[in-house]
Amino acid sequence: MALDFERLRETRAANPAAIGRALAERRRRDVIAGDGRLFIVAADHPARGAIAVGDNPTAMANRYELLERMALALSRPGVDGVLGTPDIIDDLAALGLLDDKIVVGSMNRGGLRGASFEMDDRYTAYDIAAMKRQGLDFAKTLIRVDLDDAGTLPTLEATARAVDAAAAAELPIMLEPFMSSRVNGKVVNDLTAEAVILSTAIASGLGNSSAYTWMKLPVVDGMERVMEATTMPTLLLGGDNGGDPDETFASWERALALPGVRGLTVGRTLLYPHDGDVAAAVDIAARLVHTDLAA
């Protein structure tokens, strides 16, 4: 997809205020519209230092290629919006790609991949006030709970205050919780149903109001039990693309049929598919979410 990167670079250098105007003037839509389901493409991984996809350790390192893949995904029917950190969202806004899209701001990126302080996941990207000021539509946080790491506590507290601020601003906020631990020095998320249920219970109680809280949960075996653990609207996350694509799509389809599931928030699996065909991968996922789309 042809994008004007020269103009983007010139805007960033000579006219940075234009980025704010592009965000303020974009055409907006209701978060819940049409069939009431959402398909969000995610690209907030690089800000955490997570640029690997599958066996490629630097797949997401080239920002221009990432933006081209994002632009292609956003152009496909049934894609409702994008999740990103300010650098990604500002690039997309300056390129004029956010009209009629839901824009989700990623908040806590301080827990860098592989760092000794990874569980102390400070809020180093968007805050609620900035998202309201810039006209974003949704907030997103990650909550990894490691009972053996004291860095979990400030993350929980900061997330509770983010939920408070989101509720006060009437801004939807999605919480992505995991029970996590270090295995051979690497943080690993527990993807059993029991662990996801426990993490959901912990995240659900954060803040002084849950009125604007959504969940962002992994698809695991026993997903029926997971969805019985919350009344909150839930988006499914896609994770990495290490598995068989057909099995992945089939698992999403089954989970999307469960009560409370409102759609998908997926990044690397669709932006960097095994066969390289971004449009085809995005189209398959879009039809799983929005079943009225033509094949």
Rank of each mutant, 00 (worst) to 15 (best):
Arg133Ser: 13
Val226Trp: 00
Ala255Ser: 14
Pro245Leu: 11
Ala13Leu: 13
Leu235Pro: 02
Ala294Cys: 10
Ala280His: 15
Asn56Cys: 08
Phe249Arg: 12
Asp127Asn: 15
Met232Val: 01
Ala73Ile: 03
Thr200Glu: 04
Phe5Ile: 04
Pro46Phe: 04
Ala17Arg: 15
Leu258Glu: 09
Ala167Met: 06
Thr11Asp: 02
Arg29Gln: 14
Asp292Met: 09
Gly36Met: 06
Asn208Phe: 11
Met70Cys: 14
Arg27Trp: 05
Leu97Asn: 06
Gly54Val: 03
Ser209Phe: 13
Pro233Gln: 09
Glu157Ile: 14
Gly207Phe: 02
Asp221Pro: 06
Thr200Ala: 06
Pro233Lys: 09
Pro86Gln: 09
Gly84Arg: 10
Met174Phe: 08
Lys101Trp: 05
Thr58Ala: 12
Arg225Gly: 06
Leu23Val: 09
Arg144His: 15
Ala129Cys: 07
Tyr212Arg: 15
Gly242Ile: 06
Val103Trp: 05
Ala257Ile: 03
Glu247Gly: 11
Thr124Ala: 13
Pro46Val: 03
Ala165Glu: 13
Asp275Lys: 11
Pro77Ala: 15
Ala129Met: 07
Lys140His: 14
Ala47Trp: 00
Thr155Leu: 10
Thr192Tyr: 13
Pro233Asp: 06
Asp275Pro: 04
Arg26Gln: 05
Phe5Ser: 06
Arg76Gly: 01
Asp221Asn: 15
Ala2Glu: 09
Gly114Asp: 09
Leu153Gln: 14
Glu157Ser: 12
Ile40Thr: 01
Lys101Ala: 08
Ala203Trp: 11
Ala203Leu: 09
Thr234Arg: 03
Met179Ser: 03
Phe5Gln: 03
Ala195Leu: 07
Met232Ile: 02
Pro233Phe: 10
Thr152Gly: 12
Ala47Cys: 03
Leu258Lys: 01
Met179Arg: 10
Asp164His: 11
Asp35Lys: 08
Leu72Arg: 13
Thr200Asn: 05
Phe178Thr: 04
Gly243Arg: 14
Val289Glu: 00
Leu67Trp: 06
Asp244Pro: 07
Ala125Phe: 05
Pro177Gly: 11
Asp120Glu: 12
Gly260Tyr: 10
Leu288Arg: 00
Tyr272Pro: 00
Leu171Lys: 10
Arg161Trp: 10
Asn62Arg: 14
Met107Tyr: 07
Thr155Phe: 09
Glu118Trp: 07
Ala50Thr: 10
Thr155Ile: 08
Ala211Cys: 04
Ala2Val: 06
Tyr64Asp: 12
Asp35Ser: 14
Leu147Ala: 14
Arg76Thr: 04
Phe5Tyr: 12
Gly78Glu: 08
Leu97Cys: 08
Met70Pro: 00
Asp44Asn: 12
Ala255Thr: 03
Gly135Lys: 07
Thr124Asp: 12
Ala13His: 08
Ala255Val: 05
Ala93Met: 08
Glu25Arg: 15
Gly263Tyr: 00
Ala93Ile: 11
Val226Ser: 05
Thr85Gln: 04
Thr269Leu: 09
Ala73Val: 07
Thr269Cys: 03
Ala168Lys: 15
Val183Ser: 12
Phe249Asn: 10
Asp100Pro: 05
Leu156Val: 10
Leu92Arg: 05
Leu256Met: 02
Pro46Asp: 01
Gly276Thr: 02
Leu258Gly: 01
Ala61Gln: 13
Val104Tyr: 03
Gly263Val: 01
Val82Lys: 00
Leu235Ser: 08
Ala52Pro: 05
Pro177Ser: 08
Ala42Phe: 05
Arg63Ile: 06
Ala139Glu: 03
Thr231Ile: 05
Ile284Tyr: 04
Asp30Cys: 03
Arg254Gln: 13
Ala52Ser: 14
